[in-house]
């Protein structure tokens, strides 16, 4: 009885979380323009998604931006974490305090303040993409920092010393000893940065060039418009992203469980 109740609770919440997405997935394969209408099978939405120049540009732009932002913030965040880990306690405390600001701050405030600084104060044109990229990097870097730092704490400090004693320069010791040990942290930081950039709406909307759109800003504009073919093409996009996320999460889980078996 207790088990049934618990299962019911779990599955009801799962239903709440997934029913909308799954219904959208089903409807993306029909020619219906409204959820609830019963219509025939069609791939028209997917054709529209990949043949409308606007949509293709938006998708490429979103992922391109995410990669650029993630690479930059991974570099900065990793260097920051290594540097601060070997700094004096006081300096480290200061760095961690500042690092917390973008993490706890509301995205609206982060976006607005970056916009004021870059566009109103420094008068940098939005069309250069510089405000957009810097804005997103300033959001993502602290998360990279936070995922790299625990790995540094777990690392055996003697390994670096040993490498130096064996004749490595500090650069070699860093690349050959430190970096390989913290790679899992760097990778998870990179992935976090990619997701944050893909999910961001506020920083993007306050700093983006007028003609550039990411998925978030595009979808929000599309819900206000009345173009049904674009609306249903976005169902197809949701389906593809859903499948991609599910697949990658399952693959990661299988890999993780295999590692556990080996260990």
């Amino acid at each position: 009885m207790k088990k049934i109740l618990q299962s019911a609770c779990i599955w009801l919440v799962l239903l709440f979380l997934y029913a909308p997405i799954l219904i959208l997935v089903v409807y993306s394969f029909t020619d219906a323009t409204m959820i609830g209408a019963i219509r025939g099978f069609s791939l028209q939405n997917y054709v529209t998604l990949f043949t409308t120049p606007d949509l293709i540009q938006m998708i490429i732009g979103t992922f391109g931006l995410a990669i650029v932002v993630a690479v930059l913030s991974t570099l900065l965040g990793t260097m920051g974490a290594i540097g601060s880990f070997y700094s004096k306690k006081k300096a480290q405390g200061g760095i961690e305090l500042v690092n917390q600001i973008p993490v706890i701050n509301a995205d609206v405030v982060t976006g607005f303040s970056i916009c004021i600084l870059m566009i109103v104060f420094f008068k940098i044109s939005k069309e250069t993409f510089i405000p957009l990229i810097i804005g997103q990097v300033s959001l993502c870097t602290p998360f990279v920092y936070l995922s790299v730092l625990p790995r540094l704490k777990q690392m055996d400090p003697h390994l670096y010393e040993a490498a130096m004693d064996l004749g490595c320069t500090s650069k070699q010791a860093l690349i050959k000893v430190t970096i390989p040990q913290i790679i899992p942290g760097i990778l998870s930081g990179f992935m976090t940065a990619v997701t944050l950039s893909l999910d961001d709406y506020f920083i993007t909307t306050y700093t983006k060039p007028a003609t550039f759109d990411t998925i978030s800003t595009y979808v929000v504009n599309a819900t206000k418009g009345s173009q049904t073919d674009i609306k249903t093409a976005l169902w197809a996009l949701s389906t593809l992203i859903f499948v991609l996320v599910v697949a990658s999460v399952i693959i990661m889980n299988i890999k993780a469980s295999k590692k556990e078996e080996q260990a």
Binding site: I23, I35, I241
Partner: peptide, 17 residues
């Protein structure tokens, strides 16, 4: 897992329902 899907797309789905 839903955290990894763009929130505007998820809200669109809920909105349709």
């Amino acid at each position: 897992l839903p955290m990894w899907i763009n929130f505007t797309l998820r809200i669109t789905a809920l909105k349709e329902i």
